[in-house]
Design a protein around this nucleic acid. Structure first.
Length: 464
DNA sequence: ATCGGCTCGCGCAA
DNA sequence: TGCGCGAAGCCGAT
């Protein structure tokens, strides 16, 4: 079911005769549980024409590097294969997405695009819509509840959006029907950037190669589905108990796949929900409430990647303590190399640099300490955003921007005033030790690093 | 081990 | 206008 609240016309063009319906794939890089794709199929069937899918790959996505591109190409390879099985051609071109999409729209009756919430994604859609002579319809496919339906404004906390989201779940937490288009587009003649051989495709892109691809996770909808099944079979029943213990592997690993749209949050939620068990509820809290709070944040707050996005009380309090002496002070480079005095912080940083993913619990401690050990809170904020975007596979994602902001007071309440932090919630290493074997975590990261140095990617398995 | 205070402001009840 | 309560905690008192 495609609720009409998911659909929005991005320009005022009239429908016209055309050879196909264009699905401009951008955020939802998958063939399964994709409302935008299904919407395009419904439109095409009604017009008696096929669907052509298009993806524009730009070498210069801001802060994108080889690590991200490889993961994305693995996903595009899966998407192309899966679409072909349904008789839909995926045309991939090296170009700025909105320009490629508008070129491809010339022979289209209408165009459909998925929704993105970041500045650049909004700009691409706006510019694409303006350049097209046919209608461009946006269909929101990477959230359970459409962002404007969840709330008409920037939310103050998880508590405020939680109630609003819960009220809407009966309408939106429902399966999407998938169809094979009546007309096939495989025979249409288009040039496409080949992605079947991912290494070769990667070598043809002129991207930043300073960060290595990750040894553990491979991209694509197929891998996403495999990890989801492992999570459901082996991990979900202990999720509430172990999710905040980074020495155990009890997370779903969905966030990189969600970031690239290689899996649908609706699909995950439908697989999880129903039991009502505490573990399922805890997971749905992360998947829906927390994730869609992040989307609310970046959608309504244009300064989502800066210190200025914080609430007034946090900015005032941090500024009032801007001159407080810092017990330790590190440069961006010292942080980046994981060379602080704190073995727990260094372990978290190195986990991220090596594996493209930092454990959720450690992300909080990591950000809080960057604030504590930087010259100014503004500099700390920039450092955290820079490192997160560069190394995390799910960097440059609403959840990541929100995660950094939370460490600086966003979506949180004020706490007892103290040096440097002011009223921002404080965390220290004692908290880690109370919750899990913090020294065991340091050892674990060391093992990952030495395994990676010795045998390369093959020996690098997840902890059990 | 457990508990209250820390401190601001949203959102709803009245 | 008043009041309850909040993304993951810390700290000191008991």
């Amino acid at each position: 079911m495609i609720q009409e609240e998911r659909v929005e016309a991005l320009n005022a063009m009239e429908r016209r005769k055309g050879k196909y319906v264009l699905y401009w794939m951008q955020a939802s890089q998958r063939a399964q549980c994709n409302h935008a794709l299904e919407y395009a199929i419904v439109q095409a069937d009604a017009l008696g024409i096929p669907v052509v899918a298009f993806f524009g790959i730009t070498d210069s996505f801001p802060e994108g590097n080889q690590r991200h591109y490889k993961f994305m190409l693995e996903g595009l390879r899966d998407a192309k294969r899966s679409l072909e099985k349904r008789g839909i051609q995926l045309v991939i071109q090296r170009c700025s997405p909105e320009r490629g999409a508008s070129m491809m729209s010339r022979d289209a009756a209408l165009a459909v695009v998925d929704r993105g919430y970041l500045r650049i994604q909004k700009a691409w859609r706006r510019d694409g819509a303006a350049a097209m002579d046919c209608p461009l319809l946006q269909v929101e496919s990477d959230v359970v509840v459409p962002v404007k339906e969840a709330s008409p404004k920037e939310e103050y906390s998880a508590a405020t959006i939680r109630k609003k989201l819960r009220r809407k779940l009966t309408s939106y937490l429902v399966p999407l029907k998938e169809a094979r288009p009546l007309a096939d587009s495989l025979a249409l003649d288009f040039e496409s950037f080949p992605v079947e051989d991912v290494e070769q495709a990667l070598s043809h892109l002129e991207v930043d190669r300073s960060v290595q691809p990750v040894p553990v996770l491979r991209g694509g909808s197929e891998e996403a589905g495999r990890h989801l099944e492992i999570f459901l079979d082996e991990k979900l029943e202990h999720y509430a108990e172990f999710r905040n213990d980074p020495t155990r592997s009890y997370l779903s690993l969905m966030s990189p796949y969600l970031h690239f749209g290689q899996i649908s949050p609706l699909h995950i939620a439908l697989r999880i929900s129903g039991s009502g068990a505490a573990d399922a509820e805890a997971y749905l809290e992360e998947l829906i409430v927390r994730r869609e709070l992040g989307i609310n944040f970046v959608f309504y707050n244009d300064r989502y990647d800066t210190f200025a996005s914080l609430p007034d009380w946090a900015i005032g309090s941090l500024k009032a303590h801007g001159q407080d002496p810092r017990p330790y002070r590190y440069s961006r480079r010292e942080f980046e190399e994981g060379n602080t005095h704190d073995p727990y912080w260094n372990a978290a940083q190195r986990e991220m640099v090596l594996r493209g993913k930092m454990h959720g619990y450690m992300r909080m401690y990591w950000g809080k300490k960057i604030l504590e050990w930087s010259s100014t809170p503004e500099e700390a904020y920039q450092t955290a955003i820079y490192l997160n975007n560069k190394y995390e596979l799910d960097g440059r994602d609403p959840s990541g921007f929100m995660g950094v902001a939370w460490c600086f007071g966003k979506h949180d309440r004020p706490w007892g005033e103290r040096p440097i932090f002011g009223n921002i919630r404080y965390m220290n290493a004692g908290g880690l030790k109370r919750k899990f074997d913090a020294d065991g975590y340091v050892q674990l990261v060391r093992r990952w690093e030495s395994q990676n140095a010795e045998v390369g990617a093959e020996g690098n398995d997840l902890p059990r």
